[in-house]
Structure formats: structure tokens, C-alpha cells
Computed example of a mutant assay.
Amino acid sequence: MNTPIKDLEDVRWLLGHTGGFRGGYVTDVHMSKRRLYDEGSAREVLTDTTVSIIVRYRIREMARVAKLTMIGVSDFSIFEQEGADCSRLEVVQAEWTAGKLRFWFDPQGELYVVCDEASLEEVAMPFFEDRAREHPIRWTFQSPMADWPTVEWLLDALHGAGVPCTWKKTARTARRQSSIQWEGELLPTSDAEEMECGGVRAMLYGPLDGPGFGVVLQVEGAHNRAANRILSTAADLLVRRFSGRCLVGNTIIPGGEWLSWKTLEYQRAIDSEPADK
């Protein structure tokens, strides 16, 4: 989902869709300024300011990570007193007047933005109380496409990519959400010892905000090279076959940029490692 917010009707949709982010919390705030060189004054001139805010919240039995990008910012303030935490949100207030959007991210106005327009990007997934703890290695993908991947397609694609796996289906329970279409564990077939260490939990859910679907992949059990390879290969196969966006931590990545982003992050990890002495 990537929805523009430009007028009063859009503001009403935003507050209705998100429930005003009630009970959520802000994890990241980013500000960027764009400057151009003005030959007449021989100075750089500020041309645009953009503020983006990442919010994690829950609504309608779904855990959601939203990126609200505010463009053409003319007023921006963030204030947090010592010992206070303005990241927690009771409810976001928004209005559209005289062609300007105004956002109050808490009743005291400690996080306040005025801008020309905004856009909402979001990735959603089922929420379970017994899975509230963040997994160290988790990858989420959301697509608007009505053509969902099947377990058989995923297994065939992994086999074709040189990563053969077996499928261990998760038993359905009374607490399982109706949006979950299939769920199980991908286990490596090449090494019995690595199979015992655990594989990759895979879950497909939908329909979601329309005819689309979502997939969550997360490493189960002890981390091992085989499980990490399964997750990485399955993620690559999904973004190559289906349009959508990925979620890694608090970062939302367009599917078309996933491969280059992953390569860059891998290179950064290598560069950050201490050199051998």
C-alpha cells in the first residue's frame, strides 16, 4: 500500500484506516532537506523539506508498520522532556486547512508537522500474543496481487534455485486467525543435522486491504547457514515473481529494490567486520 494524502477526504480515510494509530508508538523520525545552487545569489537555496515517521500499531487483529512521509514541510517540531517518552501514541490528530496538512502525533504537540501533502506506506501481518517478541531474523512481504503463491510453487521454486526443502505443515488451532491461508516450516533436505536445528517458518495470509496477500518468513530454532539460505532464497524468489514491498525491521523496501538493498546491507556488514590481524 502506498496511498497519497492530499485533501480532506484523504485525511478522513487515513484516520479511519489507521484508527488514528491509537495505542501505537513511533520508532523512527527522519528529516531530509533538499538544496539547489542559485547562480544569481551564488548560494544554496532550500527547496524542500521532507519528514518521515515510522509507526508500529495494531488494529483489526493485524500488526502494522506504517511509514508516513510528509512532503513540503513548512513547520516541524519534536520535543521530549527528560524522562518522558513521546513515542507512545494515544491517537494522532490531523486536519486539512488552506491547502496545508497538520499532524499532531500526541495531545501535547511534542511531535508536530505542517506540510503540503503526505503519503502512507504500510505492511501488515497477523498478530499473536504468544509471538509478540520480535524475531532476530524475520522478513515480511506484502503484495496487492490476487494471484497468491502456493506451498507447491514455493517448494518447486526453491528446488529450481538449488535449495531443496521439505514442508512441515503447522496444525490448525482454534486461536489461528482466519486470514492465514497456509503455515508451516521449510526444512533443508541436504543435511539431517541442520534439519534438527530448525528451518524457516513460512506463513501466507490474506486477503489483505483488498485482494492482496502477505508472507512472513522467520528463522526458527538455532540459527544456521542452511536456514538463513532458505530465507534469503525464498525472499528473492517472491520479489522476483510478485510485485509488492518488503519489511525488514522498521524499514519498508519496494520489492523492485530488495535485491540491491540486500546486497548493499551485506556489503556494509562485511565492511563493518574488524580486519584480521
Rank of each mutant, 00 (worst) to 15 (best):
Met1Pro: 08
Thr3Pro: 00
Pro4Trp: 01
Pro4Cys: 08
Leu8Ala: 13
Arg12Asn: 12
Leu14His: 07
Leu15Trp: 02
Gly16Ser: 14
His17Lys: 15
Gly24Phe: 06
Gly24Val: 09
Tyr25Glu: 10
Tyr25Trp: 11
Tyr25His: 12
Thr27Ala: 12
Thr27Glu: 13
Asp28Asn: 14
Asp28Ile: 13
Met31Glu: 14
Ser32Phe: 00
Lys33Asn: 14
Arg34Trp: 00
Tyr37Gly: 07
Asp38Trp: 02
Asp38Val: 09
Gly40Met: 06
Arg43Thr: 15
Leu46Ala: 03
Val51Met: 03
Ser52Tyr: 07
Arg56Val: 11
Arg60Tyr: 00
Ala63His: 06
Arg64Cys: 01
Leu68Cys: 07
Ile71Asp: 10
Ile71Ala: 05
Asp75Gln: 13
Ile78Gln: 14
Ile78Ser: 13
Phe79Asp: 05
Glu80Cys: 11
Glu82Asp: 08
Glu82Gly: 05
Ala84His: 02
Asp85Ala: 02
Leu89Val: 15
Gln93Pro: 00
Ala94Asp: 11
Ala94Gln: 07
Trp96Ser: 11
Thr97Val: 11
Gly99Asp: 09
Lys100Thr: 09
Leu101Gln: 06
Phe103Lys: 08
Phe105His: 03
Asp106Cys: 01
Pro107Gly: 05
Gly109Ser: 01
Asp116Ile: 05
Ala118Pro: 10
Ala118Ile: 07
Ser119Lys: 04
Val123Asp: 06
Ala124Cys: 05
Met125Gln: 15
Phe128Tyr: 15
Pro136Trp: 08
Pro136Ala: 13
Pro136Phe: 03
Ile137Cys: 06
Ile137Thr: 15
Phe141Met: 10
Ser143Gln: 07
Ala146Thr: 09
Asp147His: 11
Glu152Lys: 14
Asp156Cys: 01
Asp156Lys: 13
Asp156Ile: 01
Gly160Glu: 00
Gly162Asn: 01
Gly162Asp: 00
Thr170Lys: 06
Arg172Pro: 05
Thr173Phe: 07
Ala174Met: 02
Ala174Arg: 14
Arg175Trp: 07
Gln177Glu: 13
Ser178Gln: 14
Ser179Thr: 13
Ser179Leu: 04
Ser179Cys: 09
Ile180His: 05
Gln181Glu: 09
Gln181Ser: 03
Trp182Arg: 01
Glu185Ile: 14
Glu185Gly: 02
Glu185His: 05
Leu186Ile: 08
Leu187Arg: 11
Ser190Val: 10
Met195Cys: 04
Glu196Pro: 00
Glu196Thr: 08
Gly198Phe: 04
Val200Ile: 04
Met203Asn: 04
Leu208Asp: 09
Pro211Tyr: 04
Phe213Cys: 04
Phe213Tyr: 08
Val215Ile: 15
Val215Asn: 07
Val215Arg: 12
Glu220Thr: 12
Ala222Tyr: 11
Ala222His: 09
Asn224Phe: 09
Ala227Gln: 08
Leu231Cys: 10
Leu237Tyr: 03
Val239Lys: 01
Val239Gly: 06
Arg241Val: 02
Phe242Ser: 06
Leu247His: 03
Ile252Ser: 05
Ile253Ala: 04
Ile253Ser: 07
Gly255Arg: 03
Gly255Ser: 12
Gly256Pro: 02
Glu257Asp: 13
Ser260Leu: 06
Trp261Leu: 03
Arg268Lys: 15
Arg268Gly: 10
Ile270Gln: 09
Glu273Gly: 11
Pro274Cys: 00
Lys277Thr: 07
Lys277Glu: 06
